[in-house]
Each structure stands twice: as C-alpha cells, then as structure tokens.
Computed example of a mutant assay.
Amino acid sequence: MRPGQTSWGEEDSMAALRHFDSYTETRKKLRCVFDAAQEGLVTTVTRDNERFVVLSADARGAELRRLLPSQAAVVAEAGGWVAYIPGVPVHGDAESFDDAIDDLIAGLREYAEDWNERLHAAPNHAGHRSLVELVELSDDAQLRDWLVGCADAVKDEARALTPA
C-alpha cells in the first residue's frame, strides 16, 4: 500500500469520485465532478463509450498559454504596425505597436466566434481548436501577454523604431 492509503477499497472509491462511467452517474454526482476538476485531478465522464475530460477553464487557459507558443509577428509597415500569427487568417494593424496588438486581439476574438459557428468543420481551420480555446479562455490582458510574452525587449525595440 502507498502512504496514506488504508485499503484497496479506498483507492477504488477515490477513483470513483473522479471517473464517471455514465451520464446518469455524472448527473447524480455533479458536485463531485466539479470538485475533482477544481482540485486539478484528472476527471473524466463517459457517455456512449466516449470519454470526456472535465477541467477548470482557468486551468486549461493557463496550460494553453504556457504550452502553445504564439508565434506572433509584428512588423513596421508604411508608418504603422502589422501584427499577425503565421498560418492564422487574422491580423491587426494600427499606427502604434500596442494598437496593432489590440487589433489582433479583436481579430482573434472574431475568428474564435466564426470558428465555433462554422469554421471548425473546414479542413483548413480544424487544426486551430487549441488556439480558439486559448482565445476563449483568456481575457485581453492574458492574450496580450501571450502574444508579446516576455518579449518586452521586442516591444521596447519596436517603440524605439517609432518616430517621436
């Protein structure tokens, strides 16, 4: 036995509080589903032989922002700035670096909405699910941090290139 485990039955009951084998069981123990997910435990629900994972939206958003590199690019162009993510049909443009990032964030929010409405089924957009989750599970400040990240030096350099 592992430390803290009193019997095999206890381990089985702990697993039962985070793995739910049917919709009926899930519905009856919905509080346990959310409690386990809130604790950060791997929590699953099975419906019609398909398993689903239940987790906190905040935890999923933080995980995506940590694991998914933004690959955002910001370039000076014609007296302004253009911000984009290669391979994603969204861009932001404005006179200032910050405003270009704000415009990109607005574009990402529109794209996420369109993706959920219809683009998720299109082969050339289906691979953007993680990006859409990240956008929907982040506020604007979190998206900004993700886009420019710790690259404050890049942002400072961009400001230095802007005519005074």
Rank of each mutant, 00 (worst) to 15 (best):
A158Q: 02
D21T: 07
H120N: 10
T43S: 02
G107W: 14
E117S: 13
P69F: 15
T6Y: 06
G127M: 14
L41M: 12
G4V: 02
S96G: 09
T46R: 14
R31A: 14
I101T: 08
A15S: 04
P86K: 01
L67Y: 03
G40W: 15
W146G: 00
E113T: 12
Y84C: 04
R159A: 00
G9C: 05
A37C: 11
G61K: 07
V74D: 01
G80T: 00
Y23Q: 01
W146E: 00
V54R: 09
W81D: 02
A94C: 06
I105V: 10
R129L: 03
L67S: 10
H125A: 00
R159W: 07
A126V: 09
T44C: 02
E110W: 15
G9W: 10
V154E: 13
A83G: 07
E63D: 13
Q38S: 13
G149W: 01
D114F: 10
R18H: 00
D152T: 11
S70V: 06
D145Y: 08
E133P: 00
L161Q: 11
D156A: 04
A76D: 01
A100L: 11
F52I: 13
D139A: 09
W115R: 02
F97S: 00
R60F: 09
D114G: 09
V45L: 11
A153Y: 15
A76G: 05
L41G: 03
A73Q: 14
E133H: 06
D35S: 04
